[in-house]
Design a protein around this nucleic acid. Structure first.
Lengths: 160, 160
DNA sequence: ATTACTGCAAAGCATTTGCAAATGC
DNA sequence: GCATTTGCAAATGCTTTGCAGTAAT
């Protein structure tokens, strides 16, 4: 549990996220009486070193060899923990496989997904949250999180 | 292609949906130069004989024996056609497997999904559509369909 | 007659799991 | 030292596919 991540390349921004998130993750693990392990730090670091959207399998592939080796099983298991603590969010809208995205240091946002090229376009629509809240109150539903997705064609694909 | 569905039990409402939807499906198939087959009518009928939400596998199981036998593969293939024509919609938010729901004769609606019991609660929020439309205009995105899901706890599960 | 569809069983593929060895506490 | 975690590989479970036979046009 020490300089393990030294060999993982990070942008300044990513480094910052790791520096903030890792101590919080330690707290979370301790509260859970789970262990603070090397593998968990490697996975967390790799998650933040990636762009916003990624899939578990790619992440696992990146960590399948080299000095920061972590097995596929452990990647999936750690991702589940990171979802639990709220650092990532799972996206299951496309038919291929689950995608993940950061939710740490990333304001609430929704997605448009292009049927043509598969691109994810992020948009924020603050008023949506209010409407949803209202609907929940009406149904006595206790919201944990919500998700809005729009399917259609991006500008580029419309012109094809 | 005739009285095939006579043995499938239908409520009055379901029967009506089938009676309306089947001719439309025939048109769709013809336009596609696909064939109007017995299996496709059985699957369509079975879809409308079910409650709003169902999964492909359950449907396949129901049709796996008896006079209206249709194979699993064909069920999946037909469901894809029904999605294409807009009679059903796929829901991939839960981690188990895909769910389907009718969208024929069923007004636009969104879902709350209970983390505790898995229940789907339908709600409509017309103003949402407007907001989404506006966001799409802003991003030059051509909307085909959208989806809103709220995760959390239903009233009953809050009291456990 | 021609071409598409179906059934079946086998293949795919992302994800999960069992278990022995390794590691954190 | 004891319990949890890891790695590996095998298992799982939904979904898709190849192919030979069957049905629709």
């Amino acid at each position: 549990m020490s300089k393990v991540t030294e060999t993982q390349e990070l942008t300044e921004e990513a480094r910052q996220s790791v520096d903030e998130a890792w101590p919080l993750f330690i707290d979370f693990l301790k509260k859970k009486k789970a262990r603070v392990t090397q593998a968990r730090k490697i996975v967390l670091t790799q998650v933040f070193s990636r762009h916003d959207h990624f899939c578990a399998d790619d992440l696992a592939a990146e960590l399948s060899s080299g000095p920061n080796h972590v097995s596929r099983g452990t990647v999936y298991r750690t991702l589940a923990l990171m979802e639990e603590v709220g650092f990532v969010r799972v996206i299951r809208d496309t038919d291929v496989h689950a995608h993940y995205e950061h939710t740490f240091n990333h304001p609430n946002h929704e997605h448009m997904i292009c049927d043509g090229c598969g691109e994810f376009i992020e948009f924020s629509a603050d008023p949506l949250a209010g409407l949803i809240e209202k609907a929940c109150r009406k149904h006595n539903f206790e919201e944990r999180t919500h998700r809005v997705v729009v399917f259609g064609l991006c500008e580029e694909c419309q012109n094809k």
